[in-house]
């Protein structure tokens, strides 16, 4: 189980995150943010594994990732 959140107001719509998701879950929203860009979003959150590759490539630190971490 994972939850990723996008600070949509910080997204510049560069789309780099859409290219690295192994499950192709990241899509550009139809909305336009205050800067005039289509922000990235994830619609099918239940399929997200929390691998954080999208967050890793984001140049603007838009994405935060939470994940169920097994107790050791």
């Amino acid at each position: 189980m994972a939850l990723i959140t996008f600070r949509e107001e910080r997204c510049k719509g560069c789309r780099l995150c859409t290219t690295v998701c192994p499950k192709n879950l990241v899509v550009m929203s139809g909305q336009i943010n205050d800067m005039g860009y289509h922000p990235a979003s994830v619609l099918e959150m239940e399929k997200c594994t929390g691998c954080a590759l999208c967050a890793m490539i984001c140049p603007d630190l838009v994405i935060e990732v939470q994940r169920e971490v097994k107790a050791v």
Binding site: M1, A2, L3, R10, K12, G13, C14, R15, L16, Y37, G50, A52, A55, M56, P59, D60, L61, I63, E64, V65, Q66, R67, E68, V69
Partner: peptide, 21 residues
Amino acid sequence: MRKVFSRPVSLKDVPFHYCPG
């Protein structure tokens, strides 16, 4: 759930002026 990716403390919480991408 635990945060596995978030903004580092040493980076101020302000937007970058850099171009998209």
